[in-house]
Amino acid sequence: MPADRTELLQGTLEMLVLRTLSIEPMHGWGIAHRIEHMSEDVFLVTQGSLYPALVRMKRRGWLKTSWRVTEKSRRARYYELTAAGLRQLDLETATWRRASAAVESVMSPRWATGSVTL
């Protein structure tokens, strides 16, 4: 387990969940681990905060749920994107791209320290 793991960026959990579920329906534990796995173990998902987020997203109509049996034959609640959830993912992805590009640009080394003139 890498030592330099970091908390999720504020407000990104729902986007990451949407992204994860766009691959395939998944249960809560699976979502948490998939986010960690897909972030190459950089992000640490506080498992407890995942469930309230799932409930909120379901209330907004982005997710639907169903009880299914896992490979290890356990009953688990699976979460699945709805059409609205898919649209939300597109929206958030676009916003994220713009925002991260902007952040990237701000942090870019072409702005030499101390030489910003307005």
């Binding site: 249960h27 534990w29 290890k72 009953r75 609640r77």
Partner: peptide, 16 residues
């Protein structure tokens, strides 16, 4: 259902 969901979660995590 919430109870069951969290129990399953704990079992999966423990398995892992």
């Amino acid at each position: 259902e919430l109870d069951e969901e969290l129990r399953t979660h704990l079992q999966m995590e423990a398995d892992y």
